[in-house]
Design a protein around this nucleic acid. Sequence first.
RNA 1: GGAGAGGUGCCUGAGUGGCCGAAAGGGCCGGUUUGCUAAACCGUUGUACGCUGUAAAAGCGUACCGAGGGUUCGAAUCCCUCCCUCUCCGCCA
Length: 423
Amino acid sequence: MITLQTLRSNPEEVVSRLKKKHFDAKNLVDEILKLDVDRRQSQTALDQKLAESNKLSKEIGQLFSQGKKAEAEEKRSQSTALKEESKVLEEQMRKAEEQIQDMLVRVPNLPNDSVPEGRSPEENVVVRSGGDVPSLPENALPHWELAAKYDIIDFETGNKVTGAGFPFYKGKGAKLQRALISFLLDNAIAAGYTEYQPPLMVNAATGFGTGQLPDKDGQMYFVNEDGFYLIPTAEVPVTNIYRDVLLKEEDLPKKMCAYSQCFRREAGSYGKDVRGLNRLHQFDKVEIVRIEKPENSYAVLEEMVKHVESLVQKLELPYRIVKLCGGDMSFASALTYDFEVFCAAQKRWLEVSSVSNFESFQSNRMKLRFKDREGKTQLVHTLNGSALALPRIVATLLENNQTPEGIRMPAALRSYTGFDLIS
RNA sequence: GGAGAGGUGCCUGAGUGGCCGAAAGGGCCGGUUUGCUAAACCGUUGUACGCUGUAAAAGCGUACCGAGGGUUCGAAUCCCUCCCUCUCCGCCA
């Protein structure tokens, strides 16, 4: 969430910048500012009462020890009255605080100045592209048919055992998954990231920290008995490693990567979007996460984009990098680049990575701060990106590399798969 | 899952109703001493919010001793609920 200080010092700017996200913040901002005044008044009044009451209590203690019982009793009743008054003020303050918090979490992150105007994905801006789109014969198969033909992914049995969106990977299909995970992790490690294996379930405080809660709780699977959420991405547990932590400046930056399975309910999805591997309820992903000093975060974002770009290049996939327009960005992001690869039999671009700078939006929620060299405490900036999400990479590898002999593996993967052809 | 012990500041650890934002030791930072390092000595050392205030600062107040409630004029200390950690037993990959 954005900080109250930002909102307090530049309310008009907040409102105008949020227009780019097509979010009308005017009323919300006015309301918050009003409540903020109320809250401070209540606190000032309350603090005074408490100060008085603390003083009285001290005096009472002294009077008792001096045996001046009558005076003590007198002050005691004063103190009781004072306490009643404080209770009212405390309740006022608590209410205002709660309301401010409720409203503040509904304000999206401010988009960076460079974010393009626009309402829908069509208005995203292609930054650059690379790789070659293969020319496939007319009878080229979509990946779900290739998967069946070579018996490497079994959607039907997944349906039976669990439900739609939970496939089995089998034989070389399973090995390919494992190869990709190792390939991606090795690349991240080589780029200086520390590998983590995170918990796949998290508590509510963690879900709140990265912004999944309270808004998007319907997107996560929930384990009612224990109050845990299945993670939709490793970003959630990994970023929360540093929740409620005050770092030293020299501790920064933190570079972390993690492979995890990800679980998403994807309620409301349908049609060709969910065909085959295009959208699953459980999928594999390697995520990179950074915790950075504010002044570095945008340079780091570009560096992360370069890293992800190197991955799709090594996998020899036709790709393009798009900068999301205001209307297509997530609630929490200040700037997001999406990576899309061209899936040649389906003839569509599929998103395989999303790299974002959240600035202090998550760190404010998480109370993740650092003390700079002057001794000032500041919020860090957090960033993360998929590097990469597997299913659509697999789909594209299958479709684009199909030949009459079988499916050819890119050179970079062969040492991981141990085979260069699925046939 | 059962029985017991416990959660205090950067760390160790004392504190069973007022003199406790918290002893002591260590660490860190600053200073003195010093050819350098070490040692010794002295001092400093939390966070959040509010009020006053400044160029920066600073001062004052309030809250915080796992979390949330309660008792009391007054709670780290007493009571209740929850969470977590450790030990033993049970179960188990």
